[in-house]
């Protein structure tokens, strides 16, 4: 226990603010203003190479501290406000993606994360790939990158929230 406490003390609080991303407090206020509560995200890998997943996971590390901003990843689409989809949509995942989207209650948003999710990326459209997420479900916003950095993903989530609040 002493080791754990001493390591905690030595590590300190790493959560950072940068010019590119609003501070966690600002983010939290923004989300609260738009949604009136926390933002719940469900993620679906529709055929990704796992690169985008690694960067989505990184959002939970102490530097980005996603949960500290009032955004959390949820296990069920029934609990979600927003669907993040990575990868080109493989033919074998098409049905699962549609069903996940249908299971999310309205109002809901979908964000395509990564170059593959935008248009199929390097995998394009083929016998095995339907192409981008927009070819299968309606998409509100796209975050480019291969893979996009955690900061780019954060900015993308904010942008889609902001544009949704204007509608």
């Amino acid at each position: 226990m002493f080791d754990v406490l001493s390591r905690m003390a030595r590590t300190g609080i790493l959560t950072e603010t940068s010019a590119a991303v609003p501070s966690n407090d600002e983010l939290q206020r923004g989300i609260y203003r738009i949604l009136g509560r926390a933002l719940c995200i469900r993620h679906v890998d529709a055929g990704s190479c796992n690169g985008c997943e690694l960067e989505l996971q990184a959002l939970s590390n102490p530097y980005y501290n996603l949960e500290g901003t009032g955004i959390k990843f949820v296990a069920s689409p029934r609990h979600a406000d927003l669907l993040l989809v990575t990868g080109p949509v493989s033919v074998n995942m098409e049905e699962a993606l549609r069903r996940t989207w249908d299971a999310i209650p309205d109002p809901k948003l979908a964000v395509a994360v990564g170059d593959c999710a935008e248009c199929g990326g390097i995998f394009g459209k083929s016998y095995a790939s339907r192409g981008g997420v927009g070819d299968v479900i309606p998409v509100n916003h796209t975050i480019r990158g291969c893979p996009p950095t955690p900061v780019a993903i954060l900015i993308g989530i904010l942008e889609v929230l902001a544009s949704a609040s204007e509608v």
Binding site: G47, C49, S90, N92, I122, F123, S126, A128, S129
Partner: peptide, 25 residues
């Protein structure tokens, strides 16, 4: 098999100069 993206088929006819990009993914 859910994430099968047809990589082997995509490699057919790819330029030797560019195949490493697909390999990395």
């Amino acid at each position: 098999g859910y994430t099968h993206k047809g990589v082997a088929k995509l490699f057919q006819g790819t330029s030797q100069k560019l195949g490493h990009r697909l390999a990395a993914r």
